[in-house]
């Protein structure tokens, strides 16, 4: 076993070494990239948009920045680490991400310039030295609400941000998840929905969620990113679930049930067998008495 395994292991490590060497060797970011001028001021709103795009395009290999869920097998770095942030400023990151190299695809034609910059701002927001302007969304200022359309079984969720003056304005690009209440926890249903510029998102309720006898079900809406938008939630009881047809198995006549619920075939065959034995005995006794009578 050992003599087969050893060379395999070494070749594997060798291939990995070559791969990592080649991957690392080719990242030569030109000096001008460092001095790239930012097209716009980075704002919190742009980083939010960037985050949504990051989740769609980058999360598979890199994971969310700072969470360490990056794919190390293909040398995809965690973009949130202080080490990465210190070595790449916004321009350098934009260059890497635009050009691509090895496993890292080029996003030159895949995303437009604005989107690419908002992703860049999102990634750079993990650098403490990177200045972001604008109003930061405070978690406690976000409210969630939904109304129902019974005919189409649709939920229309709205997310609003309440500013300092108490005026609420729609929150765009917020991810909302829907849950149904189950006995030990909340079961997520369907896909995550994202609010549009009016702060609303439409969710089609699936029609195979089990409810109680009357189809009653408790639906809960929550923000997906509770760090940014808080734990605000809204719940409602609807009768959109499937009706529960509970058949109490104990009331059926089964072999495993109690004595008074014995299956009829068993009861009948028992009575027939014991009955015929006793009848035979009675018949014999009767015949004996008849013999006695005849002898008299």
């Amino acid at each position: 076993m050992k003599h087969i395994l050893k060379p395999r292991k070494t070749t594997f490590i060798f291939i990995l070494l070559i791969l990592s060497f080649s991957v690392n060797a080719q990242w030569n970011i030109p000096d001008y990239a460092k001095n790239t001028k930012l097209p716009t001021e980075p704002t919190y709103k742009l980083t939010e948009t960037g985050k949504q795009l990051f989740i769609k395009n980058c999360i598979q290999c890199h994971g969310l920045p700072g969470e360490g869920k990056n794919n190390t097998a293909i040398n995809a770095p965690d973009l949130g680490t202080a080490d990465y942030q210190s070595k790449h400023n916004a321009g350098q990151f934009y260059y890497q991400f635009n050009e691509g190299m090895g496993f890292m695809p080029s996003f030159k034609d895949k995303l437009n310039k604005d989107d690419k910059w908002s992703i860049t701002f999102y990634v750079k927001s993990f650098d403490k030295g990177f200045k972001i302007t604008g109003e930061k969304i405070k978690a406690e200022n976000c409210v969630i609400d939904f109304k129902t359309e019974d005919s189409a079984r649709t939920l229309i969720a709205t997310a609003n941000i309440i500013d300092k003056n108490g005026i609420s304005k729609p929150a765009e690009g917020v991810e909302i998840n829907f849950f149904v209440k189950r006995i030990f926890g909340n079961l997520p249903i369907g896909e995550t929905v994202i609010t549009d510029q009016n702060g609303t998102a439409v969710f089609k309720f699936p029609d195979n969620i089990p409810g109680d006898e009357n189809g009653k079900i408790k639906i809960i809406a929550k923000f997906k990113d509770s760090d940014a938008y808080g734990t605000a939630m809204k719940s409602a009881e609807l009768n959109w679930g499937t009706h529960l047809h509970f058949v109490n198995p104990v009331l059926e006549r089964t072999l495993w049930g109690p004595n008074n619920r014995v299956p009829l075939w068993l009861l009948l065959s028992f009575l027939i067998v014991t009955g015929s034995v006793w009848l035979t005995i009675f018949y014999v006794v009767f015949q004996i008495t008849q013999i006695k009578k005849a002898g008299k």
């Binding site: 006995i183 030990f184 926890g185 079961l187 969620i209 089990p210």
Partner: peptide, 20 residues
């Protein structure tokens, strides 16, 4: 994982995650 078959959901005792 523990739950109610009628609700078609089970919850993990450690993570408290609820799944289909």
């Amino acid at each position: 994982w523990f739950g109610d078959e009628n609700e078609n959901a089970v919850t993990n005792g450690t993570t408290k995650e609820t799944v289909n």
